[in-house]
Each structure stands twice: as C-alpha cells, then as structure tokens.
Design a protein around this nucleic acid. Sequence first.
DNA 1: TACGTCCAACGTCAAGGTCA
DNA 2: TGACCTTGACGTTGGACGTA
Length: 236
Amino acid sequence: MSKCGRKKYIKTNLRQMTMETIESQQDGSVTDSVAESESAHMQTQTGQNSVPTLAQVATIAETDESAESEGVIDSHKRREILSRRPSYRKILNELSSDVPGVPKIEEEKPEEEGTPPNIATMAVPTSIYQTSTGQYTATGDMPTYQIRAPTTALPQGVVMAASPGSLHSPQQLAEEATRKRELRLMKNREAAKECRRRKKEYVKCLESRVAVLEVQNKKLIEELETLKDICSPKTD
DNA sequence: TACGTCCAACGTCAAGGTCA
DNA sequence: TGACCTTGACGTTGGACGTA
C-alpha cells in the first residue's frame, strides 16, 4: 500500500470510529442525508412500516441506550435498524405514479434483455485490471496496473454450465466452488455499479423535486399575501 | 514540488427482498 | 425454500485541489 493510501486508510478508520462515537451520542440520529431522505420518503410515500423512520430509529436508539448503561449503540444493531430499504427504482416509480412529472428509473437496458439469463448475460469487460491489493477493476483508467487478460475467450459463466453431477474429485469441486464464487462476485460487481447509478438518479430526482416544491411553496406564499391584502379591511 | 485533504468511484461482504 | 437480486456498510484507490 502506498503512503498516501495507508494514510487514507488510517484516516478512514479514525473517521469511522469518530462517527460511531458521535452517532451513539446523538440519540441515534442519522447523519447520512440520503438515508434521511429515504426514511422520510418511506414514511410519506409508501406507507410501509417495515423500515423505521428517523424518529423511530432515534426512539429505538434511546431504548438501547437505556438498556445499555454506557449508551453505546452496537454497530451491528444500528446496521440492522438502518440496513433495509426498498430499492431506489421502486421508491421512485411509486413516487412517479403519485406525482406527475417525476421520471421513472428505467428498467434494464434492452440489450441486456435480449440475451439469455444467467450465464450468457455475463458482461465481461474488455480489459480487466488487477490492483495492488489483488482486486480487479474494469474502469480502464488505471494505467499503472498490469492488464490481466481473460483466460478464455468465453465468459467464465460458460464454464459454469457443467452440471455439478459430473464433478467427482475434491479438486473439481473446489474449482467449481471457485468458479461459482468468481461468477457471483462478477455479478455483484455489476449489480453494485447499477445500484449506484440508480441511487444517483434517485438523489437527482429528489433534488429536482425539492426545487419544484420550493418554487410552488414560494408562489403559494405570495398568493396568500395577495389574498390577505385584498381581504383585509382598509384602516383609513 | 511534496504533502494533506476531500471526494467520487470501486469491489466486497452481509443481510433483507423477491420470485419461481 | 433456495437461488438470485438489491443495497447499506466498509475498506481502498486515484484524481483534483489547496497550501507550505
């Protein structure tokens, strides 16, 4: 790890520890604005009760504090409380059905739909890079890393097509497990990218909606003032 | 120019959600 | 019910930018 990288690693850990300390002392309030908007949205738009609101989170946290004398919320518990929310696509699509003008997050690209599921849909990057930590990335913007050429012309998933019943030796089973893991990681990699893209789109949409609502609010206030002026009796 | 800081993006893990 | 999907959390990285 480079010096800068190590420094950032230490800094990140310190920041994380600091955040945990702060959060444990803030009545369980959430500092993440995205999570805040999502929770608030969940309460107002979908009406689902599976995800606690901010107030509920705070209440739960306070209850925990009373239970734990030190007042330190277990990070795992917080994670359980805050972890699950509906997908951005779902939230936004529900929102768009309620409010005209709110764009929907589009479904998967047609080119992906045109391919068979699972194995054949695996998108294999043209260039796969291996980082210094052994990670792989397909961004293509890291020239300092050596290019790791694909071992075969076919996606790895194609090899996965072999039926498990044909595997006998422990070595074959191990290879199969490794391939399954690599396939899962690759799929999850792509899913994470897509998820982040949706999240950005979702946040943009919320921001634009805030702007629209602010304008509407301003207009209504002005209208109210005008009506007040009209309706109020003249004193002189 | 070296260094520090911030930020965006990434890969991975874990856990809840969804669906056949 | 198991396989797969989705997404928050975490750790890591590189680039941009300010500063001494």
